[in-house]
Design a protein around this nucleic acid. Sequence first.
DNA 1: ACGACCGGCTAAATCGATGTAGCATTTTTT
DNA 2: AAAAAATGCTACATCGATTTAGCCGGTCGT
Lengths: 340, 340
Amino acid sequence: MKGISIKDIAKQAGVSPTTVSFVLNGKAKEKRISEQVSKKIQKIATRLKYKPNQLARGLRTGKTKTIGLIVEDIANNFFATLAKVVEDEADKHGYKVLYGSTEDNTEKAKGLLEVLKYRQVDGYIITPTKNLDKEIELLQAAAKPLVLVDRYFPHVSSHYVVLNNYQGAYEATAHLAEQGYKKIAIVTIASDQTQMKERLDGFTAALKDHRIPFNKSLVKRLPFDLDRESFNNEMKKFLTSVKDLDAVFFATNYLGIAGIEAIRSLGWEIGKQIGLVGFDDHDLFRLHSPSITCVSQPIAAIGKSLVDILMKELNHTAGSPASPQQQVGGEGHRHDLGLH
Amino acid sequence: MKGISIKDIAKQAGVSPTTVSFVLNGKAKEKRISEQVSKKIQKIATRLKYKPNQLARGLRTGKTKTIGLIVEDIANNFFATLAKVVEDEADKHGYKVLYGSTEDNTEKAKGLLEVLKYRQVDGYIITPTKNLDKEIELLQAAAKPLVLVDRYFPHVSSHYVVLNNYQGAYEATAHLAEQGYKKIAIVTIASDQTQMKERLDGFTAALKDHRIPFNKSLVKRLPFDLDRESFNNEMKKFLTSVKDLDAVFFATNYLGIAGIEAIRSLGWEIGKQIGLVGFDDHDLFRLHSPSITCVSQPIAAIGKSLVDILMKELNHTAGSPASPQQQVGGEGHRHDLGLH
DNA sequence: ACGACCGGCTAAATCGATGTAGCATTTTTT
DNA sequence: AAAAAATGCTACATCGATTTAGCCGGTCGT
């Protein structure tokens, strides 16, 4: 019921709690505890299945062996998969994960940071929202280990792991152009965050290189927080508004899903009347008939990279002011399922 | 850097930490602290943005305001969505969530329980694996609030939230039968856990009621932990081995996904050569052309129910030995997207 | 006028683990 | 043989919040 404490072991072994603590923390040698006592304590500890109370330990040492993971939406395939990888990687280092979803809402994100802070997490993995730069800088000022993911603030020098959004978008768009599509649009999120900007830049660059005229009517920006129906309506409105439109690049996976839904409800045939490319992998793209090409993020690599960076920071211990090195998780690479 | 502590407030207000604690915990009246002092403390606390250190509080009170969520696989759409709901609901009550994935591996599940235990979580939401009944009973003996989800142990009297698997499977199978399919198979997981048993029973009952002969060759059980390729191969082997097979019911969403993949790679046309019904919702089912009927779980309701039950237990405070009441989250209901 | 009582507050113990400072002994050094 | 050093272990303070027990001065009752 109450759990075994260090005192119980001390009592059974007939020594002081201090000695037990030393032994169990591998400081027996350093603190000159005799082999005999040392072994006896070990034995009792395993017999009693002693596990240190992490609260007490955390209170004393200031380290909770917990990292905070802030994602945009844990129910989204990309973030859920990322969460899984992070969980696994963190576990390898003995860390647990506290998570939260921002819904891309700055206030929610601030709230999450607040909660994680007074839960004393040791480090943070954050998918930042707009205007979260101040908070990020505050965390840095407090020497908290932290890595951003999926997007970042160019003017904040922090660690971050993102994929080459520009290149991914470029390749996606170029793919459409090379299939012979002439009037290619992009549907993206109304956000001036880096990753969307880069994707948009990649899109326009690819159009240019393939001598396809660009104009603003080819870009549709949708707010993040629409419900499914509104997404559908907006999408349909846009798709039908562009004259001679023959292909679309969707800049995120959920836009792709909403897009497919809209196209279906318009009764268009994917691959015939309209070409598609999506961003981020999803079973739906892979198994749709015909298959839908997409730029897939190497999620495992991203997750591993995130945790590795964080662990390096954490072991730099004392909290030396994070050297503002930047990391790129990997290049986006295209699926080779054919677009038809 | 260090964070504001109760002492800082006490010092500024010129009172003792005790008084501050009383006021901030709403015990001012009860403990007869004067309005004056009370207000002064409140003011200072908000000015300093004081947040109690949850570790210290947890150590003292034994409550961490954290719940442990153990799912099968957080990267799976069903569990990810559930996690989101649980996170939101828990947040409403001021609780945070520590999560972990079992991969349906009993040892991993035991490890997770261990970790959550010495992290002192207040309560558990668990998707149990096979043979986890002993551990569940131990938790109950320790008067830990706990709710099982998605499956349960008939011989363990605990709270649990599951949908009516029997009915869901029955309806799914009946749907196929009513479409005129004559030789209907089921692909399920090699597991004797309740939810799979119930789904299998629903399947056979539906066949019987529609006078479709049943025989063992119509049931394929696959191990949980195959990789994608093996799933695909096993699936293809099975689908081609049943003579005159014309429809399949997939008992989980990932089986459905793997099934669609296999059917595609066999070059069969869904809806023409073979009818399908899946379990658990997925964008893929909804947006596939033609649409694929599925039995969808009311995830939001399940999540809310889970948290509600847990909170009731938690507020029953002292840990009165959980009245072994059982809960059903809701009936599965069929999507009305037509099977074609 | 003297004990009982109350209002308003605080000292100190507590949760469990850690870590510094230091106390006895024994062993080594000179 | 006395001083210095090493050995083996422990008392106690600490982290921050909570909570029990109770102090002190004033009021009330009789």
